[in-house]
Design a protein around this nucleic acid. Sequence first.
DNA 1: ACAATAACTAACAAAATAGTGAGCTATAAA
DNA 2: TTTATAGCTCACTATTTTGTTAGTTATTGT
Lengths: 117, 117
Amino acid sequence: MRKKNSTNSINEKYLHERCALNVAIDVIGSRWVSQIIFSISQGANRFHLMKEELPNISEQVLSRKLNTLEKQKIIIKKTIPDTIPLGVRYILTSKGESLLPIFESLCAWGKSYDLGA
Amino acid sequence: MRKKNSTNSINEKYLHERCALNVAIDVIGSRWVSQIIFSISQGANRFHLMKEELPNISEQVLSRKLNTLEKQKIIIKKTIPDTIPLGVRYILTSKGESLLPIFESLCAWGKSYDLGA
DNA sequence: ACAATAACTAACAAAATAGTGAGCTATAAA
DNA sequence: TTTATAGCTCACTATTTTGTTAGTTATTGT
């Protein structure tokens, strides 16, 4: 649980108010998140498919990240009718989709950085 | 100190190898970092100027972030000759500069997200 | 002598994030 | 009846990141 009045929280709030850049970074800046969004965009849009795509993630962590992304309206969770056991599909919202080109820029940046350029 | 063989570290490495996007996110995804880079780009390129720009940051944290950014070759530290006490100026490398347009995209994204669009 | 400034670092504590292992619901197939 | 699948959640520990407090070096101004 987050402490509402820790300096940590206060600073987070300060940065969010200072510039929306910090809001964006708090959304995409934690582990697995960008990879999950990318996986969904590539069709790995169900829990078990993501587990295959990201073999090192634990179910608990995957579940937490998906819940957070849902709260942030980056993804929407839809149950798939008439499936047994009941299936769930995750869909990117337009907000989520609009991150994809930014991910491409970051990826390109990271590649040239890796090469020491 | 980081533990080299924690699952945490192993997963970090896995993600870096998987896609350079994750490298980029590890660079810009921690607190204050984007704001520091932006401040330098705007001319707040000395320790005491950054403290003014970011009144809530502690000196220890600022120092740590600057050292990390230097190791990552995002910034370069230069002493200013003939200043007393000795001044230090931080300069963005081309790698650092090339983050600025990405920050703008993220900022724009964050703004529309804030508005609930 | 003492305070002030610039630019830190060290030792530590607090908070937050990431990961572990078990368990749950429901159905159906072997 | 046990096992399997899908999609989780709970209580917990480990690890990492953030923040706190005090102190350092060197020089000038009072």
